[in-house]
């Protein structure tokens, strides 16, 4: 693998990760401070951000660590909070193929942000797909670990008033969704994703809507299989 090829992939990947740099740094710092003020040394946010690398679950994990020891509950709760990754995996079965030894890391680091970029980015034909996705994942991972560690070290010394910065992630997902929308011919699947999830959020509330949403999307997509893939069209 030539160094030039790797460099090219890095410079193609970096611009996509800039909004995540902003978001992860601040969210990471907030997470690190939260851990610190909960009584954990900076080693915890450092180690946990590097090995778990699933933002929302790491916030939940703080509460798990402060409660009674219950490893099975920790495991089950993680499966529920992170169930959405199953959808990402099925979506990326083809795209992560043929990336060689990088594949394991790509899957390990498949957070919301890495998934959304890797599944939607139009990678220029002269850029290596595997290295591009590798750098998207790696850069996001680095931003998150740096933020979390920084927050853990700075802890109580900083006054933190960047209220609202987390919207950078929402904005990122909206833009990626829009780009996907503008690129695709049929919008049924995108509308289903929005509609079913919104409906479940209203019905089940913010704590319990993820699993019903996923099931609802699966059922609808299965029922619509005939109309979404017209006869004669290759799946």
């Amino acid at each position: 693998m030539s160094q030039k090829k790797i460099k090219k992939a890095l410079s193609a990947a970096f611009p996509y990760t800039v909004p995540i740099f902003a978001g992860f740094l601040f969210l990471g710092i907030a997470y690190g401070i939260y851990m610190n003020t909960s009584g954990f040394s900076a080693l915890y946010p450092f180690g946990m951000s590097a090995t778990i690398f699933a933002g929302s679950m790491e916030f939940v994990a703080v509460n798990l660590l402060l409660g009674a020891f219950d490893p099975l509950r920790a495991f089950a709760l993680t499966l529920i909070v992170n169930a959405r990754h199953l959808f990402y995996g099925i979506s990326m079965l083809d795209r992560y193929n043929g990336t060689g030894r990088k594949k394991g890391y790509l899957i390990f680091g498949m957070c919301d942000e890495s998934f959304s970029i890797n599944c939607s980015a139009t990678i220029p034909p002269d850029v290596d797909k595997g290295w591009f996705m590798f750098f998207v994942t790696l850069l996001n991972h680095l931003y998150w670990v740096c933020g979390a560690t920084l927050g853990g070290i700075l802890g109580p010394f900083v006054r933190f008033d960047t209220k609202g910065i987390s919207f950078v992630m929402t904005a990122l997902f909206i833009v990626i969704f829009l780009e996907q929308w503008l690129k695709e011919k049929r919008h049924q699947s995108a509308m289903l994703g929005l509609g079913v999830t919104a409906l479940c959020l209203v019905i089940f509330g913010g704590q319990n809507f993820v699993i019903p949403s996923m099931l609802g999307i699966l059922v609808c997509l299965s029922l619509l299989k005939k109309s979404l893939v017209p006869e004669g069209e290759e799946v």
Binding site: S91, E184, H187, S189, G193, F209, S213, L228, V229
Partner: peptide
């Protein structure tokens, strides 16, 4: 089939997820 149609739905899901 799911691998082909799920990405758009998953991205839509993710947008709503941010508003939970």
């Amino acid at each position: 089939y799911l691998g082909k149609v799920l990405p758009s739905a998953a991205l839509g899901f993710l947008v709503v997820y941010c508003f939970k």
